[in-house]
Nucleic acid binder design. Sequence first.
RNA 1: GGUGAGGUGGCUGAGUGGUCGAAAGCAACGGUUUUGAAAACCGUCGAGGGUUCAUAGCCCUCCCAGGGUUCAAAUCCCUGCCUCACCGCCA
Length: 425
Amino acid sequence: MLDPKLLRNALDDIANKLAVRGYELDTATLRELEEQRKTLQVETQNLQSEKNASAKLIGRAKAAGEDIAPLLKAVEECGSKLSLCEDSLRALQTKLNDVLMAIPNVPHESVPEGQTEDDNVELRTWGEPKEYAFEPKDHVDIGENVGLLDFETAAKITGSRFAVMKGPMARLHRALAQFMLDTHTQEHGYEEVNVPFMVNPDSLRGTGQLPKFEEDLYKLRGNRELYLIPTAEVPVTNMLRDEIVPEQELPLKFTSHTPCFRSEAGSAGRDVRGMIRQHQFEKVELVQFVKPEDSYEALDGLLAAAEAILQKLELPYRVVTLCGGDIGFSAAKTYDIEVWLPGQQKYREISSCSNFEDFQARRMQARFRPTGSKKPELLHTLNGSGLAVGRTLVAVLENYQNEDGSISIPEALLPYMGGVTEISS
RNA sequence: GGUGAGGUGGCUGAGUGGUCGAAAGCAACGGUUUUGAAAACCGUCGAGGGUUCAUAGCCCUCCCAGGGUUCAAAUCCCUGCCUCACCGCCA
């Protein structure tokens, strides 16, 4: 959520900044609602004040043994007027809040202009796509060839966009997640957390998935109103919802390995082949809570931590800065990491690292207390994939395939593979 | 699932329906003292919002959440959520 004060005092400025992401702010409606709110709120508060004064008067009169009947009569009218005012104020505030919650974050000034992913800006590349003496296969062919990646069985037991992994393939998948967690906790200073995979609506509102993107989520049946998490970002970031942390505890850096569940509504027909786009996948997530002035440095650090995984796995990749039109609803700035997939002869997204500034923190009321007795301030939140495990598996399969159909194990994963050095049929 | 107890400020913890936004303690912050620190002493010290140039004043809201009773609710009533204890069941 944007700062309501900014929307009152600098509405046109905000509207211009939001235009960078192709969002048209309805300034006329906002101005009008705000105007109404102001009058109504002042009136309501005056009536409340009046009511409080009368109640006190009655209390004193009663204590003094006076007749309170005339006082009671006088207060009656004020009371009914007040409850009318309160009702319409509440309705108006709900309406205003709904509008505010639906406005996306303002992009950072360094975010390039542009409408689609074609306008994203390549920041750097790392590693060289390997030359193959043969036609490189894609991960589906590689996996099915060794008989360890099975989409048909998954379709039978669940449906499309699910996979079954077997034997060393399942182990490789697990090894990747372990390797990522170990690297982030031991080398990058992140604390591992294990969190619920189901969350309540407040948490989803906090990180920005609700109210606008409910159709992307799996909602559970039952009397509790819970959703499956679309990313660990939701439970991990919400750990600090309604909290005030002392400044000296910052930054807080967490990493978490969770499954992610996404309905993929709206992406029907896209990436239907293979493991690239599944309804259920695993991800090792990085989350940071930092002081506002540190958040862009923190974003660089978070990005570097994600990149380190690919470097250790010796997988070629590139980093792109998302343009205004391509960044997510809650983000102020986002870098995507795209890994080279020889089977597709393309770079494909494997991580997305974002700074949300205080957008999520305001929704969550996640704050810190600056040293000294100053007021609590909103934190800045960041997160990024470090990395998407399923897509990393895809990248390993395609980049480490051999002509005979076998797959070599990247050196960094050997300690996790229990002696397996190669996967073959 | 059953029974009982409870949810109050950063934390612990008092609170008879009417100057209670709330005692006390801890923590924090400012100061005195000290070569410095500790201790001691004095003082400050919840959050959100409105109005405003104002982080000045004034005002409003908030004692888990949502309803209700009342002129007046942290305090009484109902519902929900959560926590703790014991019992049952269970990975």
